[in-house]
Design a protein around this nucleic acid. Structure first.
Lengths: 191, 191
DNA sequence: CATAAATCTTAAACTAAGTCAATCTCATTT
DNA sequence: AAATGAGATTGACTTAGTTTAAGATTTATG
């Protein structure tokens, strides 16, 4: 289980034995249960999470108190409220488990030390963040283009597994529409 | 002028004299004119651009051929079609100058070499990208929250300079509404 | 300076999406 | 098996935003 994060890192950079060992020790395993918060505003996000098993959602509450999904993270993805984690400001975004599962956690001070000791990790995270930026831009584009029907179908294509694992209303929230409207979109799109 | 990128980098990491010199040589100065393309699909984005003076917009054309702004970059910001630049895929996003100005450019092969030679730069770019992710998330949140009136006022607060430098229809595009609707929003918001 | 070109505003008719409330489905508990 | 309750669907109605088109105002150019 703890190796999965090494596998992920080694996709982009080649750590030595000693470095891999060092990384392994920096993480702690954490079991999470459905509906459990991993980050809960206004607490500061203490850890970055790497999902080994399960599925997380990042969201915020709008002025009406409605949950609005910003991102999902399934197996082998990272997630936290990055802003809070980096700056130790109060968090604004919830991170919540949608399924029972297991994550690896690392505290900021530990990660900072790791980044100092293992320069290769800066490369890994630079690449990780690069890819995140590209993905977020794609997401923004999809929302701006805002033909919900296409947007929904694109989402299905891109995350076929999530469609079945995540409640419909979370997907609606992620797409930026109401569950009712998504229901209509579905019924006319899927026939 | 070319020092401005060093100033920017030194906000986050401390380069030695030699490293600074090395960085300086890697960039080329480029004068740009209003309406000039810096990236034009489907050409591959050859360079990353650092704005010394002027203002750039990144946008794409939707199915109707309408321009939709993804981001602006004024002084001391970076901009390119990151996906294309990183992967050498065809670019999808235009980068266009909104004003006459001056940018520093760096080619991908040169940047890659620089990142190998100067490990500190990986830290700089990791931090740069971290901040970009945080900013993009904020932007996504604003679009999802979608009370255009507030969204517009927030934009004015955050980029008071841009309001006056950038045509209204680009701002409308950035906010995800038509220029006509923004005009209405303005007239009722600003009184 | 004059005229053209580009940008901004206003308004009416229309459409996509939201709201609210009732009903339906189906998994879980009793 | 009945009862519960969370989630999904459907229908009637409202609202935010688009479209189109016209006029107003600013900016660029011969």
């Amino acid at each position: 289980m703890i190796e999965s994060v090494l596998t992920e890192i080694n996709k982009h950079v080649s750590l030595s034995e000693a470095e891999a060992e060092r990384v392994t020790q920096a993480f702690k395993v954490k079991k999470v249960r459905r509906n459990q918060f991993l980050v809960q505003p206004p607490d500061v996000a203490q850890q970055e999470h790497f999902v080994v098993k399960g599925c997380l959602v990042e969201y915020y509450l709008d002025d009406n108190g409605t949950q609005r999904a910003l991102a999902f993270a399934a197996e082998n993805s990272w997630m936290t409220d990055l802003q809070s984690f980096l700056t130790t400001e109060d968090s604004k975004y919830y991170v919540e488990a949608l399924e029972d599962g297991e994550v690896l956690t690392i505290r900021k001070d530990v990660l900072d030390k790791l980044l100092l000791d293992i320069p290769l990790l800066n490369i890994y995270f630079r690449i990780l963040y690069q890819n995140a930026i590209v993905a977020q831009k794609e997401r923004l584009l999809n929302i701006l283009s805002s033909k919900t029907d296409e947007h929904y179908l694109k989402f299905r294509q891109k995350y076929p597994h999530l469609e079945n694992r995540v409640p419909q209303y979370w997907i609606a929230s992620y797409l930026g529409v109401t569950p009712e409207f998504l229901s209509r979109v579905k019924s006319r799109s899927l026939r």
